[in-house]
Amino acid sequence: MSRAVGLHLGVIAALLALQFVLPAYHHGVLARVMVMAVFAMGYNVMFGYTGLLSLGHAMFFAAGMYGMGLAMKQWDVPLVPAFLLGIAAAFLLALVVGVLALRTAGVAFMIVTLMFSQSLFLAILHFGAITRGDEGFALARSLRQVAGLDLAAPATRYFAAWGLFSVVLLGTLALVRSRRGRVLVAIRENEERTRMLGYDVWRHKLMAVVVSGTICGAAGAAYGVLFGYVGASFSQVPYSIFPLLWVLLGGAGTVIGPFVGTLFMFYLIDLSSGLTDAYMLVVGVALVLLTLFLPRGLMGSLRDRGMKWLP
């Protein structure tokens, strides 16, 4: 077992152990952080490894969340198939958006993804009769049961979040260590040269968008199930910015970075909320300081300073 695999298994084991010792408040925060870290890990596949900066990932999160929530609320689909439907919705959306948006590059790509995401938000508002618009809707506790387990209870919720987190963490680790993953990195480093070496750049990029969108959809669906709320705010611009921030903070292009960034940012906002209600100020300052002084993030800087094996 290599150091890299050991480190990630160690993180997973530590999070499992923390379940039994954390006080109630931090227990709840960590469950939320793990789900959001899945969102960030999905974002990282595109941004960190393939070099595609999207400003519209809220749409995938929201597609997963609404796919799951509407299936349960409108058509009385049971939880597990509804969850899968949410993921399928995000997968389809990512496929369509990928095919269209990948015709552009650079700044145009960012703006196109931003606009597709904004259109989804406006569509959610427009079809308010079904989606309940701005207000969103809650999922009753009775709906959030699976195989006799109550997903609204703190302990099962933590386990469910941990399970999803572990699967995605090991999945992205396997992806970036695979041949396909290496091609993604090659595209990030030099697209022309990768094409010249005979790789189908467009197909690999599309794969990255679809994998990324699907993971983010899973995060959205899980968030809806575990915390019982589906709302339009999750499809708005800040939720496209958050994963970017978390990934940048933790270290783009590192497997563990998104989790570190999410954890760090959650507690930073938590601590600052004692000082001010305007928590987005902390987000703004963090973004500016990161681009200025720590462009490679926490884990990226560690990798630069000796931990070369960090995937």
Binding site: L53, L55, G106, V107, M110, I241, L244, L248, T276, A278, M280, L281, V283, G284, V285, A286, L287, V288, L289, L290, T291, L292, P295
Partner: peptide, 22 residues
């Protein structure tokens, strides 16, 4: 740098907005 400028100006966006709110 085009990408880092976007991230930095997103940061500026929130700083200006929230300072105005405060």
């Amino acid at each position: 740098d085009p990408e880092r400028t976007i991230v930095a100006t997103i940061g500026l966006l929130y700083i200006i907005q929230q300072l105005t709110l405060m």
